[in-house]
Design a protein around this nucleic acid. Structure first.
Lengths: 270, 270
DNA sequence: AAATCCGGTTTATAATGATAAATAGAATAG
DNA sequence: CTATTCTATTTATCATTATAAACCGGATTT
């Protein structure tokens, strides 16, 4: 089976001519959709793909690179090596989204405007689906968040641990879209929040205490499987947090996120 | 100025070794952040980049390809050619997001769960910022949406025109994050919705009429700069639409979106 | 004088071949 | 039986050459 690619620079139907490598990328994508390849399935190896599309090594290499950057495949060397379909990792998606938002000026309040709306619904929707492990993880998380020292770097780490609480809730929600939206918000807050060092540490500590308090209540209501109470508590939590954030002068540190920065976030158990 | 890249396979600090090309990609990203390059600025040409990072042609090519796929640069030939920084297009971001959602099973209702929450707030927030052109565009859009025929392909196109209404509202909102979230939702609905052909056309027409009616009211309230009324109307609109969608058996057509499909959406005037 | 053509220059794009590095699995030593 | 070394296979990287696209400026035409 050989797929024929248009070789001549397309008669210009007002469509911009595409590069060879990009055409091959699309062909491969169609192959994936067509043959309904699932994560774990393998693409033919480079040499075969070269033959299949009648292109050179460097072209097929670029095409594979494109798919790799998009997070659709991983490439490995050695026997049995080659391109393997994979489910696009959440982290990769975040990174690509950060590229988009790099040039926009997103403020903390902008994000909270969406967070206020989504989180209560997310939390309420998660309640019926929380496993015992997840409930335990919520309670466990509250312990780690107890405000201890006022050492600056520790304060930031604590704020980030706060966000783990919300990630655990998100993980339990059956709505993949809502889940994604909230995980995105958490990730942005986690990664980009740089609180002004001007802010007095007491303010931070107070923020931490308030969080622990309401998280405790939410965890309790979740154990009682009281969705409506969780929703109400989360709503209050979000409004309170909005206020704190305004005062804390949180701002987003807009820069390009590197792959090497993307690794080590402990995934909450699903 | 020459940047030295670690050449030896990194002493394995539990970090997975990265490919040369990916290291170069990161170096270039740092270059962009560091030198604060803005859209329109140019990267050095390939030969220079080769020298700068002491890598071969194909390696630098792969690195540039990576940045191109991420939407951060465009590459052109000719004397003034080379890599030019660009603002990541919204469409590219959508596409990369679709890759992520390709493997998840997102239902229509999943999306509407988020839409119900976000759209009323978005619309209300846009009201004070709507320009005369945008108000006119809203009213204009309602005209094009008047249900005419019941021809199947036309019905789908009409549903998509409905979404333009919401895109116009989104474009006026000053919150870039909320705007992005709603534009994403619109795009997903626009591109991926495939209504069951089982559904009787009358039902579609009724849906279209209901939309026109409430869009008309929303446009009127927007002209009157009545944010609260717009919020309330949009809330009702979303709830009504949710119900219709359930009955219409709308589902998402999960597949990989190709570059070639990404082009021709008329951007609403900002 | 303005527009068009045309060839040269610059740059990316594509192809090919050669060598290095990584890996899985078999063979082997302890 | 375990751990190590070996080997075959495949990608990763480099180097070189050829091709194609885009731009520039001068000559030619209108």
């Amino acid at each position: 089976m050989t797929v024929e690619l248009e070789k001549s620079p397309r008669p210009v139907g007002r469509l911009k001519i595409q590069k060879r490598a990009d055409l091959v990328t699309e062909e491969i994508k169609q192959l994936i959709t067509q043959k309904n390849l699932r994560p774990g399935d393998k693409l033919p190896m480079e040499k075969e793909l070269q033959r299949l599309f009648s292109v050179s090594k460097s072209t097929i290499r670029e095409a594979l690179k494109s798919l790799e950057v998009q997070g659709l495949i991983t490439i490995s060397t050695g026997p049995t090596g080659g391109a393997t379909i994979m489910e696009v990792p959440l982290e990769r998606t975040f990174q690509l989204l950060q590229n988009y938002l790099f040039f926009k000026e997103v403020s903390m309040e902008d994000i909270y405007a969406a967070r206020r709306l989504l989180e209560p619904e997310l939390a309420a929707g998660s309640v019926p689906f929380l496993s015992d492990e997840q409930l335990a993880a919520l309670e466990q998380n509250i312990q780690t968040c107890q405000p201890a020292s006022q050492e600056p770097s520790l304060l930031v780490r604590q704020r980030q641990a706060d966000l783990d609480f919300h990630d655990i809730l998100a993980a339990a929600n059956p709505n993949p879209f809502l889940r994604f939206a909230c995980e995105l918000i958490n990730e942005m807050l986690r990664r980009l929040v740089v609180f002004s060092t001007q802010t007095p540490p007491e303010e931070h500590t107070r923020f931490g205490c308030a969080n622990v308090k309401i998280h405790t209540e939410i965890a309790k209501a979740a154990r009682a499987r009281d969705s409506e109470r969780v929703r109400a508590l989360m709503k209050a939590h979000m409004e309170e947090a909005s206020e704190y954030v305004k005062r804390l002068d949180g701002r987003l540190d807009g820069r390009l996120i590197l792959d090497s920065e993307m690794a080590p976030r402990p995934r909450p158990l699903s």
